[in-house]
Design a protein around this nucleic acid. Structure first.
Lengths: 149, 149
DNA sequence: TTTTTTACTTGCAATTTGCAAGTATTTTAT
DNA sequence: ATAAAATACTTGCAAATTGCAAGTAAAAAA
């Protein structure tokens, strides 16, 4: 059997580079972690601080400060949940949405370029495989969840 | 078409968690970046500092210090290349090999567990897909290489 | 031989990190 | 109804990680 880890290591490293490249797109000085925060806020529905921090596997105190800087940059808003005044609901500002979308476009453009080296059949196979992989990882209770959770 | 980026983001995040979990296995206090350094030194043949730093996309100065700490921990050795006294050849100590291997085993065990949720056909498809993906990413000149290279 | 390039190291100064300890609100006893 | 416990988040550190600028030493080019 081939070395699974090696394949994954190479793939995720490459994807990591791509991610790093893309987040500094558009003149804005966004760090990789910040781009992930923007991405998740955009994706989740009215998320709280805890939720995003949990999703990203970031310590809540670190996350708190990252959000503060994103608010200063006017990319993220924070609203206290009316039902529970302890929790802060996060959302993107118009500018934040713009940045998040432009990063997303870049990423997808690059990924499409990568996929252009395959034929239609290969593309479909790969897409299905990644879905399968994600499902399997989700099923696995032992692994692949946040380090401290 | 599905959102490629989302699929990749989820997958690599999960793999990242796995990576983080695994590197702190075995009582040793190894950071994620350090585990990646050990991995690459193990993988490459008599690599120089530059080579590993380049592979990992790390600034050479940062890398220099990381290696120093790994040497202090007695996991890595540095030997000056006899053919060019400027370059340092990196290698793992016996202890380093042990750590690297135990991380590798953990990782592969977890990945096998993930793959156990698939049938034989799916497994093969997924493995082939990841290989394909890696080849395609390698072909793509635009993307997926080190940020500053 | 001098100049330039290359491989690496150190000096900062800035950023990022997480634990401990805080505040404020809500939930759970009693 | 009130005290105690839990939850959501924030701040104070102090340590670790980062990268640029400037260094050393060796090799290659001029």
């Amino acid at each position: 059997m081939e070395n699974l880890r090696e394949m994954f290591q190479v793939m995720t490293r490459r994807f990591g580079f791509l991610n790093k490249n893309c987040c500094s797109t558009g003149g804005y000085d966004i760090s990789l972690v910040q781009s992930h925060i923007l991405y998740e806020i955009d994706k989740q529905h009215k998320p709280s601080m805890q939720q995003i921090a949990e999703t990203l596997g970031t310590d809540i105190t670190t996350f708190s400060r990252q959000v503060q800087s994103l608010i200063k940059m006017n990319l993220v808003k924070k609203n206290t949940d009316p039902d529970d005044k302890r929790v802060s609901i996060l959302s993107l500002t118009t500018e934040g949405v713009y940045i998040a979308e432009s990063i997303d476009q870049q990423m997808n453009a690059y990924l499409n370029e990568v996929f252009s080296h395959m034929n239609e059949f290969e593309r479909e196979t790969v897409v299905r495989s990644i879905k399968l992989l994600n499902e399997s990882m989700a099923k696995s209770s032992k692994c692949c969840t946040t380090p401290l959770g």
